[in-house]
């Protein structure tokens, strides 16, 4: 169809053209990142069943290995479990007593019960992380009601928040991601801080009061702010170096499988508009006869308005 010369020209020109297209994609990624992310999410949606099928053999092998390891050391495992069971019975009794006491106290205080959050459970279909991001994709099925900003938890604690929504799949930005900032409260010192991810497994604690330094080993919980509910378990404080507190997450961020996404709705603590910062509503154009006082129109204050609108005398 083409002459040899035309073919040579085409073959020489194709690489620069493709490089230009790639540069265009780079620029698109810098300017309109959500467009690219939505394409990636659709692809992950389509491959979710295949991903599940791929990891099934691995899960079976891990289960067999765990069983095998347990079978080779039954006596010691039994002793350990007996000890653990004894400790857990003690804590069960303590928990029952505390729950009863808590119920009585709430009754006497006429405590308004908090709304039970809706949640959906999903399996991690793909680790969406890379050298510079920590995120996972969850298969939550079709017809889900998950919204961006919902909170994701595993069996032990906070994992992260939902950032992108697909038809079957949602993307959860983990607390260890560099872009993650979670307001937290320290249980012992009662100080507030910001937990900031830095792409390592242990997010840092920032912006804590200088007279309330985090205490090694104290519990870290979420602080109720905006759509983030308060009191969710996050982890414990640990000092990697003096003056560098980090959080050891309760959630196993390295190996995620089943994750629950909670929708707390608008139950988060949102402060009302502060006095003096309420946006002043623009007065509508109304016909005011010349010389009429504004208080007569608005009902308070003082002052004379010559003319607010295009009134007729």
């Amino acid at each position: 169809m083409f002459s040899i010369h035309a073919r040579q020209v085409l073959s020489r020109a194709i690489l620069p053209v493709l490089i230009l297209l790639a540069v265009g994609l780079v620029l698109l990624g810098q300017v309109r990142r959500p467009v690219v992310e939505s394409v990636r999410l659709v692809a992950a949606d389509m491959l979710a069943p295949a991903y599940h099928a791929l990891v099934v053999p691995q899960e079976h092998v891990i289960a067999w290995m765990t069983d095998l390891r347990g079978a080779t050391d039954l006596a010691r495992e039994n002793a350990r479990l007996r000890d653990e069971n004894r400790g857990l019975r003690h804590w069960y009794d303590v928990a029952v007593a505390l729950a009863a006491e808590n119920g009585r106290l709430k009754n006497s205080l006429h405590w308004i019960p908090e709304a039970v959050p809706q949640y959906v459970t999903g399996r991690v279909t793909r680790d969406d992380g890379g050298p510079y991001s920590r995120a996972v994709l969850l298969d939550v099925g079709s017809g889900h009601q998950v919204r961006a900003g919902d909170v994701a938890l595993d069996a032990a604690g906070l994992l992260g928040r939902v950032t992108e929504i697909g038809p079957h799949t949602v993307r959860v930005l983990l607390i260890s991601d560099d872009a993650s900032r979670i307001p937290v409260t320290l249980a012992v010192s009662h100080a507030d801080a910001i937990m900031a991810g830095d792409d390592t497994v242990n997010p840092r604690l920032l912006f804590y009061p200088q007279d309330h330094h985090p205490v090694e080993g104290e519990r870290v919980e979420t602080r109720g702010q905006n759509e983030m509910p308060g009191g969710l378990p996050v982890g414990t404080v640990h000092y990697l170096a003096p003056g560098r507190p980090v959080v050891l997450p309760d959630a196993d961020l390295g190996r995620l499988d089943i994750v629950r996404v909670f929708d707390y709705g608008d139950e988060g603590a949102t402060a009302p508009d502060a006095p003096g910062r309420v946006r002043v509503k623009k007065l509508p154009d109304i016909a005011v006869p010349s010389g009429l006082h504004l208080p007569e129109l608005l009902g308070s204050g003082a002052g004379t308005v010559p003319a607010l609108g295009s009134g007729q005398e």
Binding site: L15, I19, A22, V23, G24, L25, L28, G29, V36, G130
Partner: peptide, 29 residues
């Protein structure tokens, strides 16, 4: 061929989570 590299790069872009276009560009380079 170059067009196959481009196609492979696109697939890589879809199934990875790095900055868009970076891997595709570098594969072509």
């Amino acid at each position: 061929p170059a067009i196959a590299v481009f196609f492979c790069g696109l697939v890589l872009e879809i199934f990875s989570s790095g900055p868009p276009g970076a891997v595709l560009f570098w594969l072509l380079v």
